[in-house]
Computed example of a mutant assay.
Amino acid sequence: MTETKTKMTFQVRSIRQDAHGSEAQCKDARIQLDTDLAGRRDAFNPAELLLAALSACMIKGIERVVPILKFSLRGVEVRIDGVRQDVPPRMESIHYEIIVDTDEPDRRLDLLHENVRKYGTVFNTVAPGTELSGVLRRGSVQE
């Protein structure tokens, strides 16, 4: 007898406010979106949202495995750079740096990075369609 597993589902609703911006909503959260053709500095544009989603996926993946691996850390920072290609418009490449403030040995850092790459939903969605590369290293996290 096979057990049927319920799949996770996600819902986001975005509403155009005017020619300068929109708002995305999910659960009890709201985020301003830069949908202005001229751009705006006080909101994430779609490409930046993709990179933010990727960084959140990495941090959430770390949070998920820290208790399983009994991994000790003081903080995590993710830095991401994306390069957009014009024709056709797409993210051509994404490079990330995950900085973990920890005293764990290097082999445990490698294991943590392997888990981030292997089990991240957004990571595994983005990876096949872009050149996705990066490192996980030890360092102090800046606030």
Rank of each mutant, 00 (worst) to 15 (best):
Gly75Phe: 05
Ser72Phe: 04
Leu109Asp: 00
Ile94Ala: 05
Asp81Lys: 11
Ala52Tyr: 06
Glu63Ser: 14
Ile62Val: 14
Ile80Tyr: 02
Met58His: 06
Val66Trp: 00
Glu77Ser: 15
Lys60Thr: 14
Glu63Val: 13
Val76Asn: 03
Leu49Phe: 06
Phe71Lys: 05
Pro67Asn: 08
Val76Trp: 01
Arg90Pro: 07
Ala56Thr: 15
Ile94Leu: 05
Pro67Ala: 06
Tyr96Cys: 05
His95Gly: 10
Ala52Glu: 09
Lys70Val: 08
Asp103Phe: 10
Val87Gln: 07
Leu51Thr: 09
His95Cys: 11
Ile62Asp: 01
Val65Ser: 04
Leu109Arg: 00
Gly75Glu: 10
Gln85Ser: 12
Val83Leu: 06
Val66Tyr: 01
Val66Ser: 04
Leu69Trp: 03
Thr102Asp: 02
Leu50Tyr: 05
Ala56Met: 13
Ala52Lys: 08
Gly82Lys: 06
Leu112Arg: 02
Arg108Tyr: 04
Pro67Lys: 04
Asp106Trp: 06
Ile68Tyr: 07
Arg90Met: 10
Asp86Glu: 15
Ile99Arg: 01
Met58Thr: 10
Cys57Val: 12
Pro89Arg: 09
Ala52Gly: 10
Asp81Gly: 10
Leu51Met: 08
Phe71Val: 07
Ile98Arg: 01
Glu77Lys: 14
Lys70Tyr: 05
Val100Pro: 00
Ser72Lys: 11
Leu50His: 05
Ser93Thr: 11
Val78Ala: 02
Met91Arg: 05
Glu97Trp: 02
Ile62Tyr: 01
Glu92Asp: 13
Arg74Ser: 15
Ile98Cys: 03
Leu54Thr: 12
Phe71Leu: 04
Pro89Leu: 08
Arg90Phe: 07
Glu63Lys: 13
Arg108Met: 09
Met58Asp: 06
Arg84His: 08
Ile94Glu: 02
Arg79Tyr: 10
Ala56His: 10
Asp106Thr: 15
Leu109Trp: 00
Met58Phe: 06
Ile80His: 02
Gln85Asn: 12
Gly61Asp: 09
Asp103Gln: 14
Leu109Val: 08
Asp106Gly: 12
His95Val: 10
Ile80Arg: 01
Glu63Gly: 13
Gly61Glu: 11
Pro89Lys: 10
Val66Asp: 02
Val87Trp: 02
Ile99His: 01
Val87Gly: 04
Arg79Gln: 14
Val65Met: 04
Val76Gln: 01
Arg107Tyr: 12
Arg84Lys: 14
Asp110Ala: 12
Leu49Trp: 05
Arg64Phe: 13
Asp86Arg: 11
Val78Gly: 00
Ile80Asp: 03
Ile68Asp: 08
Val83Tyr: 05
Arg108Leu: 10
Pro88Phe: 03
Glu77Arg: 13
Leu109Met: 06
Leu111Tyr: 09
Leu50Asn: 07
Glu97Gln: 13
Asp86Leu: 15
Pro88Gln: 05
Glu77Tyr: 07
Ile62Gly: 01
Pro89Ala: 12
Asp103Thr: 13
Asp101Lys: 05
Arg74Pro: 02
Val87Ala: 08
Leu111Trp: 09
Lys60Gly: 14
